[in-house]
Design a protein around this nucleic acid. Sequence first.
RNA 1: UGCCGGAUCGUCUAAUGGUAGGACAGCGGCCUUUGGAGCCGUAUGUAGAGGUUCAAAUCCUCUUCCGGCAGCCA
Length: 567
Amino acid sequence: MNENLNDTQNITPEKTPVNFIKEIINNDLLTAKYGGRVHTRFPPEPNGYLHIGHAKSICLNYGIAKDYNGKFNLRFDDTNPSKEDQEYVDSIIEDVKWLGADFEDRLFFGSDYFDQMFNWAILLIEKGKAYVDDLSAEEIRQHRGTLTEPGKNSPYRDRPVADNLDLFHRMKNGEFKNGEKVLRAKIDMASPNINLRDPIMYRIIHDSHHRTGDNWCIYPTYDWAHGLEDSIENITHSICTLEFENHRPLYDWFLDELGIYHPQQIEFARLNLNYTIMSKRKLLQLVEEKHVSAWDDPRMPTISGLRRRGYTPSSIRNFAERIGVAKRDNVIDVALLEHSIREELNKTAKRVMAVLNPLKVIITNYPENGVEEVHAVNNPEDLSMGARPLPFSREILIEQDDFMENPPPKYFRLTPGGEVRLRYAYIIKCEEVIKDQDGNILELHCTYDPDTKSGTGTKNKKVKGTIHWVSLPYSIRAEVRLYDRLFTNEAPDSDKGKSFLDFLNPDSLRILRDCRLESSLASAQVNERYQFERLGYFCLDNKDSSPNKLVFNRTVSLKDTFKLPPK
RNA sequence: UGCCGGAUCGUCUAAUGGUAGGACAGCGGCCUUUGGAGCCGUAUGUAGAGGUUCAAAUCCUCUUCCGGCAGCCA
């Protein structure tokens, strides 16, 4: 029996896996919990640049809105002026747009709701559910108890409503210094959930806010503000990371006490990538201590870094799709990220010739000033991208790595007396190795076989290897920056005894200043990606490149299965 | 030893009582004028022990391990 019957009739449609969040939404849709609406949001605090972990959240939230024909908001959770900055607001908007998460006209700021929040706080005070506390930060900490012991009530907990109202207004009016008073929710100092032990709603911060200026000196805390923001914006599913799971009872408590519209908070596991760090604080440290050039250094896992490195929005979206969404802690192999960009660029990037570490080759039997055009395909994966002529000449440059005087077995490239094909051109044979007094190789003298021109039909001659090259007189110069992982350790920030800085890879950036490219690259554009044949994918650096000094970044190398045997 | 979560190939992630599958990584092979790409093959993976059931990754019980929480950060 043939078990591989080509039974096209019974092909079951591929079930697209539904993650647990979509299951919840599907169920809410079934029960019409939110009247069939789906409305998500991405709520960054503008205190740093977005990174690939945020991209996961953006793609999740935007993707859900899109899949369900719903809406997606970008909302800044800007409740702490001491850490926030307009620079971060600007970069975040740029990055979210670049990723393709379309928030249309729904760009919001938590700070725009400060008045409403203030009024709601008064409502809670009037209900006897909030009070002004005079305890210091230290005293509050001591009263909070521990993980295993209940806390103690503040002596100010039972202040009369009128006093609370008066004090709270005076807090707002700037009568007190930072830390002198706070507004607290009156819940339960003995709760096993520490977040419910009379959490702080407002603290006094005499700082200028990047949007509200000096209008306020009291600012809402995350726990108080977040659910209100979601409620005001009519969010249906408020998706956040796992560390807020313990805060959900508080999220619910505020909304229920206020009796206002109540979105549902759902928590998922944040993205972790091996060989990288994701903490905003530590990324900031890398920038401030100049271990990298800036937030958009191509070695950074920031969106702006990945963009500068040459990643495309779609490759990041595909990555986010592939890694899935669940509640278990996870560490994604950075190789999967690299796979996502290779996969796309293989299909879309124009192939070009570039020699990073040039070695001069003189083809001695080629005419002195002869030039001819060879025919190079722009993308063998997509012939519609056409072809281009490439000048071939007597003097060419090849990669230093593509010649070895004493080659190991299985080395398919040029060797003394050996033959190799020049991509799109001829088979050449190495006749002589020219060296200086110290034995350094200066140039190679080769001969070519005129009968082996590429595309002229098969010849008897077969060679194992094909190498890339550029014509010496017809090539242009460029700087090329090669990147490697920033850290040498899989989990740089989880070593108890060492700092993540101890694992910084000293070779994460290699700058090659005398590379030679085919001349068509003179008109390269920032948004174009190229495959330098046999080397990897490259793009123009969006900051440092200029027409008279081209700078290319290597996005990712090609997978290379050849390994030099260990010496 | 408080509370809340979690545990499926190396890494992610499916299977929602009915054949444990996919992707990435790895390994082997084919093919190749990019040692790229592509194609084919390749897994002693359900934390452990009991139980329910014709049937358990899935339901129940117990155990083990991992993560989060004691900011006037988010």
